[in-house]
Amino acid sequence: MRRISTFFYGIGQGFAGLARNRMFSLASIATMAACLFLFGIFYIVLANFNHMVREAENNVGLTVFFDEGISDEEIEEIGNKLRKRAEVSSVTYTSAEEAWESYKAEKLSPEMIETFGNDNPLKDSSSFTVYLNDPEMQKNLVVYASGLEGVRKINDTTEISEGLTGINTVLATVSIIIIVVLLLVAIFLISITISTGVSVRKQEISIMKLIGATDIFIRIPFIVEGMLIGLFGAGIPSAIFFFFYDNMTTLLTEKFSSVFNLVSFLDKNEVMKVLIPVTAAIGIGIGLIGSNLTLRRQLKKIAVKE
């Protein structure tokens, strides 16, 4: 019963503390919101980037070309061997004619096409496009397919995907550094807010100590205050992301249709189910750390008798 009343007392006093130090509280909430907004942006960018890389890896398969003069039966046999592999999801055959038609349509002007007449410069470019269940297995399959009789060349996406992973790592590292610096600033601001709160309530705390209030009873309102700053700081960017994520992705898709027609953004719910709890946990955690860091020192300074 006592614990419940202490809990509600702490919550009430925490809100009262926020109201009492309005300006400092607002500054702390704004800083926390700015930090967590940046965190959210980085998270959304990284999560979508990962998603797009994966999607691209899944959509862009490796291409297997054959030796010159290979028979249709031999091509069929290579296709069967590839289909039997566990990492392969599907194999599509593209004849030399189809490859030339597709190339003409995408890359050449009508004038240039005329110069070729009925010749097919890609007559030895019939191929299999192989799609994988797991892009991580690409290297294995390349080794296997290169060893098959009748296979001349394989175009794989390992280099591209390694390049993208490298960009991803750099982006993640830079994000983490920026976020850590910003969160340190937020901790610092929260501790200033809490120590201001403590000095405003110095006499009250002194009386509480004198009367025999427990240490935790004195601390709870300030801890709650710090956590509320964190929670509100997390709530603002979470709300922005929740309400504007779809608008943002739609806008980007429309503006950069050439890029975003090939890959898609993560679904809002997919992003929010991770982003909102993580943002709230970081906010509350930072509030807890910030308030605790300063409380021990500040409360020790207050004597029951000067």
Partner: peptide
Amino acid sequence: RSRGVCKLRRSIGVVFQDFRLL
């Protein structure tokens, strides 16, 4: 220990010259 100090202070009523009222 600190818990004992709280109990001690609850058993002592204190009045100061400057009243110390909120």
